[in-house]
Design a protein around this nucleic acid. Structure first.
Lengths: 340, 340
DNA sequence: TTGAAAGCGCTAACAC
DNA sequence: GTGTTAGCGCTTTCAA
């Protein structure tokens, strides 16, 4: 234990300490091939005694195999992505694969850099949020020769496989439900993020379906920055001051929706009688509010799991996914803020 | 561009395509050493044309340098950790270092496995949450020979450097403030996580300071699972049914505190007159609730930044941190739920 | 400014 | 069962 040599330990050290060849030590440490119980024990003891930690860099180079899966997401602060991660982890935990996360901050150029960085570690697969990428990113992914799963969005052409929901459809379905419930004067509150393609697609689908019903969005507003809950309250107040006629507000996510709900509840509004509300995501966190916001589950966990399963199947047996696009169908949850 | 050879590209391919030696190609791609502008251009063009992505595995093995920093946290679903991550990233972004995250789910054995896994990639440093680890983990960290920063908690003996707050002190200070405000019948609601050492230390400090003031916790309850917001409401209801006398509830985190606050607010309680509330964390997310919960900022972002700075200084110039323990001093925020 | 040779620490493939 | 040999793709070092 008196160790002041900063040189990291190598297989050779374990080999010498145990009197077993490097090759056999390697076999023991990886549980590969037949090794007698006796030498096995000797090696394990020596390794533990020395505190040897294998060098995966050397191992990966020699074996040409890396057990990492690159997971590229826009942000960790939006609860949506940790939940997708949880789905991915839950599947990969039972395999030899390990997720490694990269964050893009919703910036395509950063996505490109992160992707380049991650690919340079030669991962066994890539799971990447969204279906829109720069040309350079797409080229890298195609050239990588590894399985690529684009997640969360199916409105587009996947590079390899896409797993997600159609946000356009989600927007349409919510609009349809709102119209069916008899609301007519509809407002929209969203985030000011030109690069949040999924939010935009929802909005597009939403207005499109309203149009089919002969209804136009009466007022809309986009925010950026700040606490979503606070912004939701504040913007709800503003939009209703401007358009007191509104009988429904569709929020681009549950967080600002919850802010609006709390505010209106506080004001003693009759929800969903005089005014209805709906968000998007199905954030579990919000269970426990005085009233339950209508929303649509983005199926984050399912998406994460499916994506991981596809990668694992490819790595394990080379099985490609049966289809290029795997689309989940989220259902509306009416909560207490949308009439049936 | 007609590429159906799945073999990944190597330096040699770029070398051949550009007619420049591998060595010089390597120099260009790393911006090392003097290379004439002419060859430089040739190489860059060839690399881009081919879509070459360097192999960091080989690079790392040859150079014995890895630009990764292992960041080991208990969970990504607790907003606390993404915020620490953001602090870390903000600093590392301006360096050549890259964070790589591992999640332990608050399990010491999993921490051990994750640590082993990450160390086997020979990162340049480790940032790890908490100051309690298994003996094996501590041994690995010590033997690794790389800078190690334990974050979030300073109540203990660091392996190398610790950056955080004293949760014991945090609990004490909250207790003192509560007593000073004149509350006397105090309840506590927390999470049932024996391995959340920081929550436990806060509770210990809290009861200790109350005891000094001659006060004992009148009722306490621990929950596990479910939405924190919902649990906060539910448990608040229960504890008050059991002990209607309570004039203060201290929550082990802001999320269940917010649940309690929403519930009591709904009930029309006089807060902070008849009953006071306080949480812990300073979760930005909660700005925008009808009333602001008293809390104490855990200084997550500062801690993340400081930890990253320490690692970078060590990697860059070998500068060790000036002190082994760097303790931040969070201040109480009284909000609307704690009398002054 | 450029190139050639010699590894980095490990594992695939093949002997024994 | 165990050992030997020859790389994996890059960078270090030294020579030109």
């Amino acid at each position: 234990m008196a160790d002041d040599d900063p040189r990291p330990l190598t297989l050779r050290d374990v080999s010498e300490a145990s009197g077993v060849s490097e090759m056999t030590v390697s076999r023991v440490l990886r549980n590969r091939g037949d090794v007698s119980e006796a030498t096995r024990k000797k090696v394990l003891e020596a390794a533990k005694e020395l505190g040897y930690v294998p060098n995966k860099i050397a191992g990966a180079l020699a074996s040409q195999r890396v057990n990492l899966v690159a997971v590229i997401i826009p942000s960790m602060r939006n609860m949506v992505f940790p939940e997708v991660m949880a789905g991915i982890s839950s599947v990969l935990e039972d395999t030899e694969l390990q997720p490694v996360v990269g964050v893009t901050d919703y910036e395509p150029e950063k996505e490109e850099r992160v992707l380049y960085e991650m690919l340079s570690w030669r991962p066994s697969g890539v799971i990447i949020a969204g279906i829109e990428h720069t040309e350079a990113s797409k080229a890298m992914l195609k050239a990588s020769g590894i399985p690529v799963v684009e997640i969360m969005d199916t409105d587009g052409t996947p590079i390899d496989t896409a797993v997600g929901i159609s946000h356009r459809r989600a927007g349409r379905e919510m609009a349809t439900a709102i119209l069916k419930a008899g609301y007519q004067k509809i407002g929209f509150l969203g985030t000011k993020m030109p690069l949040d393609f999924r939010a935009r697609k929802r909005f597009e689908g939403f207005t499109e379906a309203l149009a089919k019903g002969g209804v136009e969005v009466m007022a809309q507003e986009f925010y950026s920055g700040g606490s979503a809950l606070a912004k939701g309250a504040e913007m709800t107040k503003e939009i209703l001051e401007r358009e007191p006629e509104l009988d429904f507000i569709y929020y681009s996510n549950d967080m600002i929706g919850a802010g609006g709900l709390l505010y209106l509840h506080e004001q003693g509004c009759n929800i969903p009688g005089d005014i209805g509300l709906a968000g998007f995501n199905g954030i579990e966190l919000l269970q426990g509010l005085p009233r339950k916001l209508a929303t649509m589950d983005a199926m984050r966990s399912e998406i994460g799991r499916k994506a991981a399963e596809i990668i694992w199947a490819r790595v394990e047996n080379g099985d490609a996914a049966p289809e290029k696009i795997i689309e989940f169908s989220p259902k509306i949850s009416y909560g207490d803020t949308l009439r049936r």
